[in-house]
Amino acid sequence: MSNIVVVAEVRGGALKRPSLEAVTAALQLAGQSGAKVAVIACGAGLDAACAELGKSGAHKVVAIDGPAFANYSGDAYAKAVVEQCKALAASAVLMAHTAMGKDLLPRVSALLDTGIVTDVVAVGFEGGAFTAKKPVFAGKATLAVRAAKAPFVATLRPNNFAAAAGGAGAETQKVAAPGGNLLSVVKEIVASGGGKTPLQEAKVVVAGGRGLKEAQHFKMIEDLAAAFGPGVAAVGASRAIVDAGWRPHSEQVGQTGKVVSPPLYFAIGISGAIQHIAGMRTARTIVAINQDADAPIFKIADFGIVGDAFEVVPALTTAIAAIVAGK
């Protein structure tokens, strides 16, 4: 029987949540196409991650485990993943559209001599072919495609499928990570967020723009994010304040920054330029705070407050902190 294969992302032994979202998409496709779901994980010391994956509803877990795979290498991982995809008779290969997924899966697709569709928000199986939908033109349009070559390879936008949970406990097959010549390899990972929640995985994104007037006022954005409690919210920025040097580019949301789709997004002192909207229009709920009632951001916001951020945001922070404390 063929398998819908999920390539899991494991960093430092920890399974990354978007991998479980990919399992959800895989289970859907497996149901529609009459296949099983197998997960491939690469790394060194994968037991904990595999135990978690085993309970995700997947039918099988393959761990390519060993010291040679302690650090990510696009070429070495791709080769090993492709070998397992062939052994599993993969009809589809899915991975999250993360820094690793974007680096790894295109290479996997090349080695499998097939196509790839990236940053996918919906998958399907119709009339014997895999289908996908993905935003193009920075979310201004949606492209629907049908795979004409096998296997179907896709990266999935994080925060878009629910995380899979509640399987019976699948067996893990261990494969020794092959050593050998690495063309590229990660030498070092420098934590830049100080343990902060990654922007693209955060449940809440609080973003600030030029309306804050000075770099030091970004503190009120950080305070609002912190009010949601540890690990819930991340801060974002418009390009205007990244270009002004107030915030690092890693926090920029938009066409030339990060695309985020959190359940809740706050745009504070952000006008809503088309390039900014491109990065957050798929957020489930958008809240805008802007003193200009005609600001374009209000056209896409679910809820808006017309007002001065310097008054509104501290009051909102207090109110949210009280709710979170009461939970």
Partner: peptide, 27 residues
Amino acid sequence: KAMEIVALTLPPARAAGKIVGTGVDAV
């Protein structure tokens, strides 16, 4: 092509939002 285009569409417009109020009183 390894992927055939089925359709290119404009995304559904977000449902019209709502201004809940003005200033700090709207919190």
